[in-house]
Design a protein around this nucleic acid. Sequence first.
DNA 1: CTGAAAGCGCTAACAA
DNA 2: TTGTTAGCGCTTTCAG
Lengths: 347, 347
Amino acid sequence: MAIAPPAFPPRKTIVDVAKAVGVSTKTVSRVLNREPNVKPATRDRILSAMKDLGYRPNSPARMLASNRTYLLGLIYNASSSYITSIQNGVLAACRGEHYDLLIYPCRYTNPELLNEIREFVQGPRVDGLILVPPISDLEEVHDLLLELEFAKVAISREPASDSEWTVCTNDREICRDMTRHLSRLGHEHIAFITGHPDHKAMSNRYLGFLDGMCEAGLEVCDSLVVQGENTFESGIDGAVRLLRRKPRPTAIFCANDHMAAGVMKVAHERRLDIPRDLSIAGFDDMPIAARVWPQLTTVRQPLEEMALLAARQLIRRLRGEAAPKFNKLVGAELVIRQTTGPAPANS
Amino acid sequence: MAIAPPAFPPRKTIVDVAKAVGVSTKTVSRVLNREPNVKPATRDRILSAMKDLGYRPNSPARMLASNRTYLLGLIYNASSSYITSIQNGVLAACRGEHYDLLIYPCRYTNPELLNEIREFVQGPRVDGLILVPPISDLEEVHDLLLELEFAKVAISREPASDSEWTVCTNDREICRDMTRHLSRLGHEHIAFITGHPDHKAMSNRYLGFLDGMCEAGLEVCDSLVVQGENTFESGIDGAVRLLRRKPRPTAIFCANDHMAAGVMKVAHERRLDIPRDLSIAGFDDMPIAARVWPQLTTVRQPLEEMALLAARQLIRRLRGEAAPKFNKLVGAELVIRQTTGPAPANS
DNA sequence: CTGAAAGCGCTAACAA
DNA sequence: TTGTTAGCGCTTTCAG
């Protein structure tokens, strides 16, 4: 009834390979799985027989027999814009390791989220999970996966326990550095638009801002900190509110680039010159950062690399090769472009 | 050695379900696959037994036995920015149909591309393929898949034969409409930055521009058409060249939004007021379009919907339910924002 | 270092 | 409308 994938000439199996070489299927299976205990000579003969016969392993069969799928799952919030980088990193780790990626977008606010995830991991279609914010911030998700004893690595999450596997960046330090950059440019009234309160990494960014202000001996005025929601629109709202303050801030540091783009829009509409009248900084170095005018000063997180490290570690673990502890910290860097400049003289 | 997915309590199988209900495994299998020839009453009993026992089908087993993977493959060029919309559309079609998505980024210029694709489809990890530009423009890819008799649907491709399955938009008509919009605003010197010549949909956009110019009785001056490459940078280059022309164009229509953003950058740097001094139009309605300042006038292609239709059709075909012909045309629409306005009076 | 046999959980073909 | 019987191609015992 359904159209089956064609198979002419009929696909070769390990039986064919085993026959051709004159060994048992088990031996073939061993070289397939890179197991030890195969004489190099035998191994080579098998390998070349595979090539000659055009043999390709049948993955469903391996899955069934080994109870593993060689598939990694990536659960993410559907509207996250950075997911492409993450995907690329994960796939880079999968290449050559015989793993593939199954992506699973969902809404992190969905009350059914836990059930969805349970379904997904018990499919059972994936061997391990990669979690990204804001889903990696949800304790319930980690608890569920712990209960299910399901392998996972979280990106941008501070490990709640020692056995939890994470890859994160120095959000806090780098935000202090950005604030320092601003203060060195002479800014004293520096405003901050925070990220969505559900995102933990966001609060670290704010802490870094506070660190920087403190270090520069600048006062953090309550009225110069407004709550954003990571969106372009909330950046607009934040800017509108901030530009009403007296004294008006001469610099606005946003917890992400989308909000910074919103601030830029408001500044442009008010005919403020960026950065002469107002400096603006973002965070993430999304593609948009280099494409707005003027180009946005921001912070680059090596998302792709983080994802690669996370996935590589996960694969090791699934192979049983991994160390018990894995909490990797990778460095972010300032990307100083055109939206930050000296504070106005009369400020 | 490797950490196996935990299975406590041991997972239920169709045998358990069959026993519980007192039917054969085949009957259970039938309801699992929504096959006909099961008495509704039996069917209901089986369904509720499944629920009671917490049964979940083991997908590797189904794959092995049925020679299908219930996985769709999405092959795309790694640097394509619109891939998120496509993914979302495909996944929307997969939901509820027991299909999942395997993504496979690659470089369309890679000389190994055909081999990569061959490996991918013969994995055999996917049942069918969804192709997007610029890979869907490559004849060799279609030929290979034809030779392999592998099911596929192409997005944004004009079918080379009647049996080819495609979903595309009316690029040409909508570009004529955009040109008409510009001419009605009084523009006479309208420039066009074309897309990368490898992308077929791009040439249709150019043809639409020509149609529009013709319809408006405007002359298409060779010096007002420049070749772009779909990138922000090529938009910058194009703008620099175009703004040197005499008479200077009063409007620039770009074959995509990235290039339009590049044009905006140049315009801003030269202190041209958009749209008073220069109108700019893009194509795609990428997220960036609404976030630059002023907001970009562009064309919205329902990419997500296109992907959904493509995937849905592919799934039907894999089920053996599909019609032999499938060439879907979905409509794009103008999104008139702030970068297009009346032509300067003195032009 | 290698092999024989027994399944993994499901579906296909045929029978009833 | 339902059941029976073989496998799918591989990995896993466990025995050499």
